[in-house]
Amino acid sequence: MKATRDWFGDILVDVSADNPDVVVVNCDLASAVKTTKFRSTFPERFIEVGIAEANGIGLAAGLAQEGFRPFIASFGHFLTGKFLEIFQSVGLNQSGVVMVGTHAGLAIGKDGPTQMGLRDLALMRTLHNVEVLQPADGHETRQMLEYAVSHRRPTYLRLCRQPQREVHDENYRFRFGYPDVVRPGTGTALFTMGGMVPVVLDALDLLPAGTPRPAVINASSLPLRPSAVREILQPYDQVIVVEDHFLRGGLIDEVGRLVLDLDRHVRFGGWGVHDYGQAGSPGELYERYELDAPRVAGRISAFLASTPADREHR
């Protein structure tokens, strides 16, 4: 059990050993975003800007224009809060910056909505040339970082605070834009990403006996490739999306747009965080927003049992 931010800190050092153009721009959060190991290993490649994400983004964009592959790391909420600078310095200029946003979703807990990364996917998805990555475990984090240092496109890496188990084995191969089927199922495809993948897998084990088990699809990189989604959805006539993010703008919208483009009717549903978020323990928050395993199981059961008319009256 290890958080993807912890995997990031370890693996960044590994991939940087053979990539001397990798530098880190830090925003006074090295211990929280796990760049301390990089700082001690490559001190000459570590730049501290303090509590100044806007300045850090501009600096990182300039370094990218000079041939470096800069990683700028902060809480996802703070980093994407500087959207104007990201738009103009990174996106518009095609600057090859890796923007690392940690503490995704509700798991930051009692610090509350002023620090929760709940809108970051929506913001980054508006920039057509920014690739979004959110690993589900250590295997995927390693392959995503190897991929990120192999090119120079603008990238947003979304990382979780909560420890989570491995859901892939050594045979897994990450391909950008291609969702992977973590667990096959019948009738329904359930899309999720990041820290919600193990939660959804646990939820399926809690479904009543005889309930058809949905397939679990890990949509870990955005934008999704439409042809890959069409191929995955061929056996399914129902789709559910579960995400640790605002209801609008994130994975629900990404998958929903692709489902609408299918040449057949597919029943669609999804849920995430329906307000700005609250302060509380992570357990309390995931329970409140029905994003813990027992309540995910309940929502799946209700979806499978309901009709379109039922949903209209809820």
Rank of each mutant, 00 (worst) to 15 (best):
D10A: 01
I11N: 01
V13M: 02
S16W: 04
D18I: 07
D21R: 14
D21V: 07
V23Q: 11
N26W: 02
C27V: 07
A30D: 06
A32N: 09
V33Y: 00
V33A: 00
K34C: 12
T35D: 03
T41R: 10
P43V: 05
P43A: 09
R45Q: 05
R45K: 07
G50C: 13
A52N: 08
A52R: 08
A52P: 03
G58Q: 13
P70N: 10
F71G: 09
I72Q: 09
F75H: 03
L79E: 12
G81D: 09
K82E: 13
L84E: 14
I86M: 12
F87M: 13
Q88N: 15
G91L: 14
G91K: 14
Q94D: 15
Q94H: 15
V97S: 04
Q115C: 12
Q115T: 12
G117L: 00
L118F: 02
L123Q: 14
T126M: 15
H128P: 03
N129D: 11
N129F: 06
N129C: 11
V132M: 14
L133P: 11
Q134N: 13
P135V: 06
D137L: 08
H139L: 13
L145P: 01
E146V: 08
Y147S: 13
L159F: 04
L159Y: 02
Q162I: 13
R165G: 09
E166G: 02
E166W: 05
F174S: 01
G177K: 03
V181C: 08
V181M: 05
V182S: 00
R183A: 09
T186L: 08
T186I: 10
T186Y: 05
G187H: 03
F191S: 00
V197F: 06
P198I: 00
V199Y: 04
V199C: 05
L201Q: 01
A203V: 03
L204D: 01
L207A: 06
R213V: 14
R213N: 08
S220D: 14
R225A: 15
P226R: 15
P235T: 14
Y236N: 09
V239R: 11
V241G: 11
V241Y: 10
V241F: 14
L247F: 13
R248C: 07
R248L: 07
G249V: 03
G249E: 07
E254I: 08
D261Q: 11
L262S: 02
L262R: 10
R267S: 13
G269T: 06
Y276E: 14
G277T: 04
P282Q: 10
E284A: 13
Y289T: 02
A293H: 06
R295G: 03
I300L: 12
S301Q: 15
S306G: 11
S306L: 02
D310T: 02
E312I: 00
H313V: 06
R314A: 14
